[in-house]
Design a protein around this nucleic acid. Structure first.
Lengths: 243, 243
DNA sequence: CGTTCAGTTGAAAGGCATCAATTTAGGTGG
DNA sequence: CCACCTAAATTGATGCCTTTCAACTGAACG
């Protein structure tokens, strides 16, 4: 029973951080990266399915997701987190778990607040992240409210593909996607069985397939059609700050 | 056919603003209210159902709501806005409309950004608002994903009641609520008919009633039970900034 | 080679949408 | 103050989408 070897990279020096261009601290000029290191209180590595206790962190490698449960135990996934995302475990009872093996930098909330207090650009970067989260949630709300199972699935696949594309984690025809069908179901408000059927339909129709952790987009036009996709970007540009 | 008289109050001087304690500018000390006035580019009054074109404003009186439509025309209401709320019309195609007659202060985005650039506390106040929006959306997502019609309705009624309570716009047993059943339906991802049936059930069971623009909470314990209500506040306290 | 988890598939039941009317509530003009 | 008109609220019947319950398959693993 040898422990599974650990292939997940750990975050190193902030100055050479590979995800910083997509992360909260993207606005901090190279000359001041030293200040970032002082906000980082720890570096951590977790295994898939482990729940994360830290309240504020930026994901470095791997995926995570936020979720809640109903009194009857059913789960609702609120959001998926990708490398570079700032994740906050809020006080409202939502939990955060690793979807894959993952590593991240824990931030000290008070020192982060200090930093934002000194650097309005950073505060605005923080706000941008919140704003993006919000529009993603709005899209999902629309999905759950007004789309059927296939539409929801198509929409989520497009959203994730887009997010990965922007970070260089995907090409036009597909991307690695470590989600189980249970994750899709819980994110889309469906039963696992029905999520499976919707996925099977997309596959049979030659629209898209998700197998062995990889998404293949076979007919993007049709996928967008099924999703009722608005060409508008899911992560729109937001307020820009002058400092 | 005389025009309906206008009873909606218009915002006046920022220094005496009645909603400021709940609004973005709550963090600006009285001594500096002058700076707020420079961010306000206009004061506006709209009639119920009118759509609002301004991109950033803080609602002063009346209700508003954000919404989108699917290609087939069905509407999804994304959020309701109450007096004091900062509202942004985002670039993602969502629209904002007045739910009742309403008045608001239009803000100049660039001057607002300037202000936030100078005042980190204000930037954090902005972020807090975003964060609250986000947790509200998360709650709603959970509703649409995992609650049945009655549960969704119960949850939304409790959410709105709570928001009103915090602003002094409600008492423990009820509150004025200007929503039509169609608004409830479109917010909850239901048909109007089914929203009606759910509402009728709550009324028949003596749990809550919504009539003539007023919500009455008759049995809060039961309403919370139906909603799967977590005692956690819907608008939790967030990061605090030191300036 | 047994176990377990993810993925599939089928059948039956249920919740919600849809379609169709009807009633009620407000607002308007006479 | 009443008749009238339109939007909102109701109620009923029918059908579809999704859930639920029950197996069953396949792959990974010890």
């Amino acid at each position: 029973m040898s422990a599974k070897p650990n292939l997940t990279p750990l975050p190193g020096a902030c100055s050479a951080c590979t995800v910083r261009p997509f992360a909260l601290f993207r606005v901090v000029p190279q000359a001041r990266v030293g200040e970032i290191a002082r906000v980082r209180s720890a570096v951590r590595l977790v295994r898939a399915n482990e729940t994360i206790r830290d309240t504020v962190f930026t994901l470095y490698a791997g995926w995570a997701f936020s979720w809640t449960t109903m009194p009857d135990g059913r789960r609702q996934i609120l959001d998926f987190h990708l490398p570079g995302d700032l994740v906050e475990r809020s006080e409202d009872g939502a939990e955060v778990s690793a979807l894959t093996d993952a590593s991240f930098c824990v931030l000290a909330r008070d020192r982060l607040c200090d930093f934002m207090g000194r650097d309005p650009g950073l505060a605005m970067s923080y706000a941008e992240g919140l704003s993006r989260d919000r529009s993603r949630l709005r899209e999902r709300l629309t999905s759950l409210g007004r789309r059927d199972a296939v539409g929801r699935l198509a929409h989520l696949l497009l959203e994730l593909h887009g997010r990965l594309l922007r970070r260089g984690g995907a090409d036009r025809t597909g991307a690695p996607l470590p989600l189980k069908q249970a994750h899709l179901a819980d994110a889309l408000g469906l039963s696992v069985e029905h999520a499976n059927r919707a996925l099977a339909l997309l596959r049979r129709q030659g629209v898209a397939s998700l197998q062995k952790g990889r998404l293949e987009i076979l007919d993007r036009a049709e996928l967008e059609e099924l999703a009722g996709w608005s060409s508008a970007p899911a992560e729109p540009p937001l307020v820009t700050v002058k400092v």
